[in-house]
Design a protein around this nucleic acid. Sequence first.
DNA 1: GCCGTTTTCGGCCCGACTGTTTTCAGTCG
Length: 575
Amino acid sequence: MLNQALAQALAEIADLLEIQGETPFRVNAYREAARRIAALATDIAEIHRAGQIRTIPGVGPSLAARIEEFLTTGRLAYLEELRRQVPPGLRDLLRVPGLGPKRAWQLYRHLGIAGVAELRAAVREQRLRTLPGFGAKLEAQLRRALEHWQDLAHRRPLGEALPLAERLSAALAECSAVQAVTPVGSLRRWCETVGDLTLLVASAEPAAVVQAFVSLPLARAVLDRSESGASILTEGGVPVALRIVPPEQYGAALLAFTGSAAHYARLCALAARRGYRLTTGGLIDDRTGRRLGGATEEEIYAALGLPWIPPELREDQGEIEAALAGRLPALVEVADLQGDLHCHSDWSDGAAALETMVQAAVARGRRYLAITDHSQSLGVARGLSVERLREQWAALADLQACFPQIRLLRGIELEIRPDGTLDYPDEVLRQCDFVTASIHSGFQQSRERITARMLAALAHPLVDAVSHPRGRIIGGRAGYELDLEAVIAAAARSGKALEINANPNRLDLDDRSARRAAEQGVPLLINTDAHAPGDFDLLRYGVAVARRAGLGPAQVLNTRPPEEFLAWLARRRRG
DNA sequence: GCCGTTTTCGGCCCGACTGTTTTCAGTCG
């Protein structure tokens, strides 16, 4: 399906036009069309064949022609033309907090800055302040933003790395010489960002696998190849390594390449204590020279007196002690999740109709769903006035009648306003089934003020949960200043839930914070924050955070069946 | 660039904050 590729191309056109100073409305037309196409449940090629391109909202004659060109030729001449005018690195500058299209273009025109590396040099040499409109404070702000950026320079968000690894693995599995293939490293441990992308393959015919790997359609260039492995650069410019081992060594290699280094070192030490040696080829008894295992991870763990430890826990954060004591937690799984308490529709900033979102949730087996569009003060997201909210309730009641298999909840993502007050009067909140509060404004406020806002929301009897508590965007902004410990303590006191936002760009709470919250008895929610039907599939990223936090289903509120969840809500509201 | 019981032009995208200014442009969510 080409929907995502097309959406990305249109979004890139929007960015490039914006950098060039094109009118915001034209830019927005491309951006909106990209969003709509990304949210489509049907293959765009099919819509095209049916002559229905123009029925997509936001697609007029001009965009229809571009879409047609893309679908018939696989190219977009307009985009290629724009790329010639605007250096590709300028798009990266847009992601640096404090820089937008105007400043990015100015940096390019006057200082020749066409990428993050050049920006970093210019900041270091204090050249930015020479530009009109730029000053020492902005320069300092950018310096801080770039420090955060530096940590991520060579790492990719999990939400980008995992789908790529899955596509490559699936393509490679087509090769008959491949007996098994697994992406290893921090990816297999579901770390929120991934440095090196490596695929591990079990095969008795490595040469055939290498050949298949370097011939993949996704491979743009071959960086390196040998008899037992290779490295390629993918279409998107991501380097990917391949390692091939014989099937009888597959488990030992999985263990070694999955890591973490600290976890693996502990295993090696455990092996040494028993007179064994753990290598990437297998577990060896040093006295007899006999191989004790190597084909599977399970047999190696077993030989060391341990149960198999899920990769998400392999960080040497107490999992080995827990395993030795037989206290390894039974981790929550995607299939355990019964409800989603955070999603949007096109009533606010979602890309799809209410009915489409409900259908998508039903199709994925969700048994309850809170529609939580934005509240009134969030103008940019078309936040709902009280009147519109009441209209939505009526629409929801109609939908409920059509979808008896899912319990629909009147929800709201309630803005905690910059002054700490909530965005609707109590009488409106009282009529909502589920209220999750969050912050999208006043990001620059002091730690004290933002913490006070959060605590005020948590103290309000009609607030049930807080969404994406840290406000961070992975690879984007660091999140506002916040005393998270105070927020966790307040949630524990008041019996309110904190969210693990499953969007791979957020993962907020993160695993460590979620673990601390759970330790204090705070109920956690794993929510997708879906803005389009396909976003419900992001659930697995949130589940991974919970698993890395060591959580079982009992600690995740929305693993409960609908009646139990509603009973929790009712109990909570009674106080 | 899209859209239209205000229908072929003129709206559409809000409001706050910040840093640079001397009345406002740029960015952000």
